[in-house]
């Protein structure tokens, strides 16, 4: 068990290095570099910079060094000092801009995941145990629709419905009066009132998907001999279903927690842009549009790191839950 955890964590390290390298490459991809942008900014504000000065700056920042050296400088600053570089667009340190938004993204993603589970698992179990029943068909239809509607479409539709029929603005995470206010009970309640929309938007698609997965898993498991053994012990149907096949049908589920996170982050970005949420999405989008690459790269790096951690966690969870994995 312990060796498995250590093994997984050790495996995560090369993945993390690879992830960070890709993020760095993305930062480097657009033509021009930090100095080009900086000089343009200075020139814009009226200062005069010669080509020579520009070249000297480049030398000073080490931008002429090989890519790997630059990467090392960048990543070591992050790991050692938590220094993600500077956003040119906002003229701020990246580290001062991202954590609030990342926190909200993480909160929304986690909440939608929990929400998804709470809804999808019982429905999946119900659909499988009452296969071909009326509600099974209803949920199947829902599952298909959920798969077909992209997040931003759902967000747009919700926004339009909210506006057209309920006369309310469903965008944002806070009402106007709380937007800049410090945290208080009122602000928290206000957050909850706004939070359900992004959560519904994010959870809709994944719930539909998970119902299908859970139903299929359950149907597989319900046909297995150990279920019959459990019935033959005299347990009630409810006990049998929830103690045995559900327990096992959940395992493939647990192993997908790690994969669910990237999907949720992706969904969050689009939904946040549409719903105008103060999460990573809009800022990342703006950073990419402005080619503010240190900011964008940091977001991509951190989101990827979160998912790598999520994958490791779900592998460990799976090992806890399934003794057969623990062996291997």
């Amino acid at each position: 068990m312990l060796s498995l955890i250590v093994n997984r964590i050790l495996w995560a390290i090369p993945t993390l290095i690879f992830v960070s390298f890709i993020s760095f490459v993305i930062i480097q991809l657009p033509p021009g570099d930090y100095v080009t942008a900086y000089v343009a900014q200075l020139r814009h504000s009226g200062e005069y910079i010669t080509e020579l000065q520009e070249a000297a700056m480049r030398q000073e920042f080490g931008l002429n060094d090989p890519l790997l050296v630059q990467y090392w400088r960048w990543i070591s600053a992050i790991v050692m000092h938590g220094d993600f570089g500077r956003s040119l667009e906002w003229n701020m340190d990246v580290k001062d801009m991202i954590w609030d938004r990342l926190g909200l993204t993480l909160a929304i993603s986690t909440l939608s995941m929990i929400f998804t589970w709470i809804i999808a698992i019982p429905i999946g179990v119900y659909s499988a145990t009452r296969q071909y029943s009326f509600f099974d068909y209803i949920f199947t239809v829902f599952g298909f629709i959920g798969k077909g509607i992209p997040e931003f479409m759902l967000a747009l539709i919700l926004m339009w419905l909210g506006y057209a029929y309920f006369n309310m603005d469903v965008g944002g995470l806070f009402s106007r009066q709380y937007e800049t206010a410090p945290w208080s009970w009122g602000k928290f309640v206000d957050l909850l009132e706004h939070l359900w929309v992004p959560i519904v938007v994010l959870a809709f698609g994944s719930t539909a998907g998970l119902i299908r997965v859970m139903r299929a898993n359950m149907l597989d498991e319900l046909g297995k001999p150990y279920v019959e053994t459990a019935y033959a012990q005299g347990f009630t149907e409810r006990t049998v279903v929830w103690r045995y096949p559900v327990r096992i049908a959940l395992n493939p589920f647990i192993s997908t927690v790690g994969w669910a996170l990237p999907a949720l982050f992706s969904g969050d970005i689009i939904a946040a842009v549409v719903l105008n949420l103060p999460t990573t999405g809009p800022l990342l989008l703006k950073a990419l549009q402005m080619q503010d690459m240190y900011l964008a790269g940091s977001f991509i790096l951190i989101l990827s790191v979160f998912t790598v951690i999520g994958t490791v966690l779900s592998d460990i969870l799976l090992a806890v839950s399934d003794p057969r994995i623990r062996m291997a």
């Binding site: 297995k224 001999p225 053994t229 399934d322 057969r324």
Partner: peptide, 13 residues
Amino acid sequence: MIFQEPMTALSPV
């Protein structure tokens, strides 16, 4: 009752 498949007739978890 005992069943044919001892491999799968017991809950694996």
